[in-house]
Design a protein around this nucleic acid. Structure first.
Lengths: 363, 363
DNA sequence: GCTTCGACCTATAACGTTCTAGGCGTTCTT
DNA sequence: AAGAACGCCTAGAACGTTATAGGTCGAAGC
């Protein structure tokens, strides 16, 4: 009902609660932290007073006083869907361990340096960086000051911890699956210089070797749907045309699927497609993409526990790099090859009765 | 080269810098804040000492001492792509005004209450909530303590500021565009109880009225691709079949597009589709969705300036709700209707030479 | 030559919390 | 029965910073 609050009420402090409960300030602190040192009767009284005043602890004062801030800084890309899953996992893992998260986003107008700098000011005890692009030397410098853990990017450094998916093994799962279905001409659309892309290329090559398939076909791709669309056109032009393809990630695979469908190439009838990430995209029932799932929950749990171990002064483990096995999620974009259904390359006439959309003016 | 740093070096404080520069602590503070009260020579000396020690101000101590924390709390959904755009905009707007952002994410395992509670502990001066689902009474309670601004959701309250897109006007732009192209049977796939959905339904009805089109067709939709896919099937079954459809958002529209293409309905030949959000999805060249763009930059700039005005004690403006006009981005999913190309409803046989993907086992 | 002033600097006290040291009573040892 | 041990509580200091109130010193004013 206050039309315009002339003066905002000062927030209640420990002193206010102490005065109201008729005890000393430190005792209120003891009660609020649930540490031993107060009788049950007093606890009751203090908590009641705190409730009545709407007391909320001031985390800044708390952190200033106690050397431990119980704060883990997290740098993430606000645009990247998978980072959303990781942040979710980090929250629950940190929460379970009694730590808080300080989020700092990388945006088109805010680079990683700034994101990290703001976390440093906040007196985080440790840093978790999701898919950072900072040079290794920068990361090493940071690691001098505090534990630094990198997720989803291999880092050649003895001072930085790494938790990442076993990218090579993931692609191998995909190739194994396709080979078991009977495919022998399997292509790979790669991710260029993206984190993990090199590993996935290697996994593809090794898996083909293992199955005795020697006609590897690696097409330049990328991270986006557009990259996938472009790669798909090259894929269709390849001769002999592959019957299956593993794609760097789900976004890129979506672009591949779109072009295939538009060109009248049935999926999975004429072309099986496997993605990577198990993003929400892949799970959509109308996409239903067979894909390699990164175990975000294990990755984040491990990241947090590793960082905390480091904070607790545990000695560095033998391997600074933890590699998490992914698993394959089979949906509807993979099936045995059907040579009988092969049609001549090129767009299917009936499906193009309507004009193909032109490139958008604002592309 | 230190294999295992036995003791992490304590962070440099003002006192350390003061000792090294041979001056008092407050003077160092004066220099670091760039406020008058020190000679140029001393400034030089102090800054040099700070540099050598790698001094970084402790934002916690700073905020504790000065009543102003210069901190704006932001609650956002880590899964929602458009929130990413908003967060980006908020960062630059806050930065320009000399404020910091404290991010708190809503995740599947972390609801809005918790997200808000953690920001309250951080002693933010104000709160910006992106598309919150908290009940109005909760929002009003918060607004008692501090300025609260809600983005992208209409709130019926006299104490909460709101900045949002003019949803009704956005759909009207879409309908105007379609009507100008010559469409007369225009359907709308709605967003159910999602924020803004009611406004967009209203805009759709009003626009149809304005163009003298009386056969409104509103199909239940939702926020996701799956919702769009389901709605698209109902759309195709409608008789007479509409030649154009406006969809609640881009994600949902993507599901619509997918079903249309799969069923052999050419876009935009037989069906024009307009989305809402201008998300990165819509911009993909192989999607090229005509869509209503929300002006994230203006929304965020306005949100920040409004919140800061409130902090500066400026009187409440007449309207607590600021409504931002959206604009239409025409891409390739809209064109004049082509009755000549109409085919009987139902899947096009040739396009189904391969089996349609079954619903994924993991849905 | 005494004030007045301004430029520069310092001492001290906060901010809200937690840590350390202790002070009482009561109960357990021996 | 004296001391140790414990449970409960308080006083005072500390965390790193900034706000307030001076203090010193040379120059300017009369």
């Amino acid at each position: 009902m206050t039309q315009e609050p002339p003066t905002r009420p000062r927030r209640a402090t420990l002193a206010d609660v102490a005065a109201r409960a008729g005890v000393s300030v430190p005792l209120v602190s003891i009660v609020m932290r649930d540490v031993p040192g107060a009788s049950d009767a007093t606890r009751e009284r203090v908590k009641k007073a705190a409730d009545e005043l709407g007391y909320r602890p001031d985390s800044r004062a708390r952190m200033l006083r106690s050397s431990r801030t119980q704060l883990i800084g997290v740098v993430f890309g606000v645009q990247h869907p998978f980072h959303g899953d990781l942040v979710s996992g980090l929250y629950s893992a940190a929460d379970a361990a009694g730590y808080e998260l300080a989020l700092s986003a990388v945006t088109p107008g805010r680079n990683e340096e700034r994101a990290v700098a703001s976390l440093l000011q906040d007196r985080c005890e440790a840093l978790i960086l999701l898919g950072p692009t900072l040079p290794t030397t920068e990361l090493a410098n940071l690691a001098d000051r505090m534990p630094v853990l990198v997720v989803a990017r291999p880092v050649r450094s003895r001072v930085v911890d790494v938790v990442r998916t076993d990218d090579a093994a993931g692609i191998q799962l995909a190739v194994d699956h396709l080979a078991e279905l009977g495919h022998s001409r399997i292509a790979h659309i790669d991710g260029g210089r993206a984190p993990g892309a090199a590993e996935r290329r290697r996994g593809y090559r090794e898996a083909l070797d293992r199955h005795g398939l020697d006609d590897a076909l690696i097409l330049p791709g990328g991270l986006t749907e557009d990259d996938g669309a472009a790669a798909a056109r090259r894929l269709l032009a390849a001769s002999p045309r592959p019957t299956a393809v593993t794609v760097f990630n789900d976004r890129c695979a979506t672009g591949v699927l779109d072009v295939l469908r538009r060109e009248g190439v049935s999926v999975p009838g004429e072309m099986s497609v496997v993605g990577f990430d198990d993003s929400s995209l892949a799970r959509l029932s109308h996409v239903a993409l067979t894909t390699v799932a990164q175990d975000a929950e294990r990755i984040t749990a491990l990241a947090v526990s590793r960082v905390i171990a480091r904070l607790d002064g545990h000695p560095a483990p033998d391997e600074r790099e933890q590699v998490i096995a992914p698993h394959l999620v089979v949906r509807s974009t993979t099936a045995p090859p059907r040579p009988g259904l092969r049609r001549p390359a090129g767009p299917h006439p009936a499906c193009d009765a309507g004009p193909l959309p032109l490139p958008g003016p604002l592309g």
